[in-house]
Amino acid sequence: MGINKRLTRLTLATIGAFALSSTIALADADDNELVIEGAKMTTMVEGAKDGPLDEVYSGWRFRSEETQALETDDFDNPAFSAVDRGKELWTTVTGSKGKSCSSCHDKAEDTMKGVRASMPKWDKDLGKPITLEQQINECRTDRLGAEKIKFDHADMLAMTSYIGLQSRGMPVNIDTSGPMTEWAEKGKKIYYTRVGQLDMSCANCHEDNYGKRIRADHLSQGQINGFPTYRLKWNGLGSVHRRFKGCMKNIRAKPFKVGSDEFVALELYVASRGQGLSVETPAVRN
């Protein structure tokens, strides 16, 4: 890849559009250690040899100390109202078949351990990868006889944060082998493709310029190991796809649809860039 060419183009684009501040350049990830309820999280791992990043950082390392503190205690973390709700829903009968999640999956603490860490995951029947939300909807329609719900529906976020919590502290472990390779490649292509009126790709911010400031914001690597995440800006939890949509709007591109093949592929690829980071679900970000 013509790195020089890319950098030059990037510099021009960013000076024109965003004026990345060079005075505070390389205000990198900080050295703080994330301990949640006594459990130490891995917020930095060495990148794979053939991977795009030398060091892989959780977005937590780019946040202010006040925002960081909100994630270290499960009472202070405002996402836990949703987790409580998810726990309730787990055993609540819904749909035409008179069943709840626990009818098949028993205790989430046992059966859902590690699930978040390896999503999206291959679905043999559909012949494509699916996200946690899509898996939940599949269970709802096929096994519970219930309606599908949207990724950012309060009940869905309650479920994804409760299920995700069962993997907290486990390393992100995405399988991109076999039939998944093609999808990861598709996601990679989206990641590096410039789109929108600002003509930017994901990589322009989150690979080339993480650690710098974009106006008042401290750019992270865009890792998704903490989703669904409670964002102060949202006053609540949101899905990865909602975040992707926001990024695309910022660069004035027409966003893909939540749950689309494009976003599933992108989620798969972005998740694979964070291999080894601890799952932080439900994380807190600005």
Binding site: C205, R213, I214, R215, A216, D217, L219, R231, K233, R242, R243, K245, G246, C247, K249, N250
Partner: peptide
């Protein structure tokens, strides 16, 4: 209070 940066 910082304003601006990336919404989403």
């Amino acid at each position: 209070v910082t304003i601006g940066g990336c919404g989403g």
